[in-house]
């Protein structure tokens, strides 16, 4: 209990809460000066970068954006083709997420400090941090060198980064279980595997599900990008062809809307999921 001073209500409490003025206004001046300078540099930079071309360039940007987003239209490819390609990207995302989740759960048991010995936990943690530090797309390209450009490289590369990402997330969820709860079962003579099955798993399955779903969303984004970058096919490949090959901005717009629609569906499911596990 924090004791609050009791006042009679007759005399107002003597409070001396003057804020030292110097610090606040000095930092505010510094922020303002920095922002002002940046604004000036940007304006000068933009105007001198391409004198006379800024106007036409902006106009053409507006025109292209209009083609993309206000007049989306299918060009080379049929809707069925695009939907099939979207399905392929979704399948790639789902497949790599499932592989990642299964492997990551096993890894997380070796990474969580309340389950694994300290040396193992630290080793796993470092290893996973190293893998995570390199972006997914780079892993796909690395595996493209090893396995060859194509679907295999995409699957291995996406799964690889998913494992590292989910291991960290899962391990942290597991570490949130108070050690005493696990000790309570240890003192009854239960084997470690049974403790994982009956104490760890029921305690974390909700947050594991949300993390896995977040990774699914990330993997979908990656699957679209990888389609173009690693020749895996999928909606990303069509996007790449339509924009860089055919310059068909109307089709680019259609594809973007298609991806957006699916992203909205994902978001909706995520919100529902969070509501249920919370």
């Amino acid at each position: 209990m924090i004791e609050t001073p009791v006042t009679s209500g007759l005399e107002p409490p003597q409070l001396d809460l003057t804020v030292p003025k110097g610090i606040r206004s000095r930092s505010r001046t510094a922020v303002r000066a920095t922002l002002g300078t940046l604004l000036l540099v940007t304006a000068v930079g933009l105007l001198t970068l391409a004198p006379g071309q800024l106007g036409p360039a902006l106009l053409s940007l507006a025109h292209n954006l209009k083609l993309m987003f206000l007049q989306p239209h299918l060009g080379q490819d049929t809707l069925a083709q695009l939907l099939g390609a979207l399905g392929l990207s979704i399948a790639l995302a789902a497949y790599t997420t499932i592989i990642g989740a299964v492997v990551a759960f096993a890894c997380a048991l070796l990474t969580a400090r309340n389950l694994a010995p300290a040396w193992l936990a630290t080793t796993m943690r470092t290893l996973m941090a190293l893998i995570r530090a390199i972006p997914t797309i780079l892993w796909v390209l690395v595996y493209a060198v090893v396995i060859g450009l194509g679907t295999e490289a995409a699957v291995v590369g996406l799964s690889f980064h998913s494992v590292a990402y989910l291991t960290k997330a899962y391990a942290e969820a597991i570490e949130a279980i108070p050690t005493a709860k696990l000790d309570a079962l240890r003192t009854s003579g239960a084997r470690p595997l049974l403790i994982i099955r009956h104490a760890v798993w029921p305690s974390v399955r909700g947050s594991l599900l949300s993390w896995t779903f977040i990774r699914f969303e990330i993997n979908f984004t990656n699957a679209v990008a990888v389609g173009a970058a690693a020749g895996t096919g999928g909606i990303g490949y069509y996007l790449f062809m339509a924009s860089a090959f055919y310059f068909d901005f109307q089709e680019v717009g259609a594809i973007v809307y298609l991806v957006l629609a699916f992203a909205l569906v994902l978001e909706f499911v995520a919100v529902q999921l969070r509501r249920r596990t919370a």
Binding site: P178, A180, K181, D183, A184, L185, S188, G189, A190, R191, L193, L194, I195, H198, A199, P202, S203, G206
Partner: peptide
């Protein structure tokens, strides 16, 4: 602090008392 597994039912928590005798 009781150290029960909170999301599980009271019955399941009581059944945890058998885990020491359980085969894998």
């Amino acid at each position: 602090d009781y150290n029960l597994i909170e999301p599980l039912s009271a019955l399941e928590n009581v059944l945890h008392g058998t885990l020491g005798d359980k085969r894998l």
